[in-house]
């Protein structure tokens, strides 16, 4: 993990990070003064009454997953969406960082859409590897690929912030990690060319663009090249999913953050034989939904992980 771990704030952050293996509901982001801040999970974020642009990140809904780690992934997605609906201040939009479905089945996409649309927010998706496993690899693109390039990458602007959705789950090479590929990197370079360096950038993709744990494939082979194009920009925030737990680090002006899943937790790197779904006690899973929030503020240098259980 990183240079931010050495601060002394009671229970050491490193220890908290190591222990963080829960599922959650969603992360609320707000941008004030051009700098994105995470306000933690929606429960606590609602109380913060953020001003300026706010947006939500949800990830890894795995609709269709029904194994012991969470027999009802659709139900926990719905709980997350209900919390969003209950927020007193409506966020501007939502991003979903992939693995909408578990097996790319039509019914799974339909169910996900039915639940997520209840939030009545624009949703900007990027695919996870679980969204591309239908026979013809067409369902994701039919639904969410409109206006995107290649396997589904795109960019858009909101309130002066430039958002870039990347796809790093296709054409993966044996023995390797996530992959962006030459075509997408070239597009990214052009997308950023000539853009004012004071434009805050939010980059989002499914698999972490930074190397979290290569032994479990948690990183992107050519993620470093993407980040090279972002050199010189004053504020860069990289949002990912895939690893079903919160991880974050700051490198210079780049903040990396991974979101929780709404479906099931995965173990912290190296703490289990594999990154597969982690079964916890039923009552523990429920209490984990929303027990942790993450705040970071650029300029503060300190990342704060706040343990905020919704129950108990």
């Amino acid at each position: 993990m990183s240079d931010h771990d050495h601060h002394d704030d009671g229970v050491s952050r490193r220890r908290v990070l190591e222990c963080m293996t829960w599922a959650g509901t969603g992360v609320l982001w707000t941008i004030s003064g051009g700098v994105p801040h995470s306000l933690g999970l929606v429960g606590s974020a609602a109380a913060a009454e953020p001003s300026g642009l706010t947006f939500l990140q949800i990830s890894d809904s795995h609709v269709g997953f029904d194994k012991p780690a969470n027999p009802n992934a659709l139900g926990t997605l719905e709980e997350g969406i209900n919390k969003i609906i209950a927020m007193p201040k409506k966020p501007s939009f939502m991003i979903h960082t992939g693995d909408i479905t578990h097996l790319s089945k039509v019914a799974e996409f339909d169910n996900a859409e039915r639940i997520i649309s209840q939030a009545k927010l624009d949703v900007h998706y990027v695919p996870g590897e679980h969204d591309f496993i239908d026979e013809e690899v067409k369902l994701y693109k039919e639904r969410y690929g409109k206006g995107t390039k290649g396997a589904g990458w795109y960019s858009f602007d909101a309130s002066g912030v430039h958002f870039i959705g990347l796809v790093n789950v296709v054409d993966l090479k044996g023995g390797g990690l996530g992959n962006l590929g030459a075509e997408q990197l070239e597009w990214l370079e052009n997308d950023l060319k000539g853009r004012s360096k004071s434009t805050p950038i939010v980059l989002f993709a499914h698999i972490p663009l930074w190397t979290v744990y290569p032994e479990w494939g948690w990183g992107t082979e050519d993620g470093g090249r993407a980040l090279e194009y972002l050199k010189g920009f004053g504020s860069v925030t990289v949002l990912n999913g895939h690893i079903h737990q919160v991880m974050q680090k700051v490198e210079g002006n780049v903040t990396f953050h991974t979101a929780r899943s709404t479906a099931f937790p995965q173990p912290a790197p190296g703490t289990a034989p594999s990154p597969g779904p982690m079964k916890v006690a039923d009552d523990k899973l429920r209490s984990m939904l929303g027990i942790a929030s993450v705040n970071f503020k650029l300029g503060d240098q300190r990342l704060a992980i706040i343990d905020t259980p919704l129950q108990g």
């Binding site: 590897e129 679980h130 496993i133 993966l172 090479k173 044996g174 023995g175 390797g176 990690l177 290569p214 032994e215 479990w216 494939g217």
Partner: peptide, 12 residues
């Protein structure tokens, strides 16, 4: 025949 999992390419 070298092979891998296309979803989790670290599996070979």
């Amino acid at each position: 025949y070298k092979y891998f999992c296309s979803l989790h390419p670290h599996m070979t």
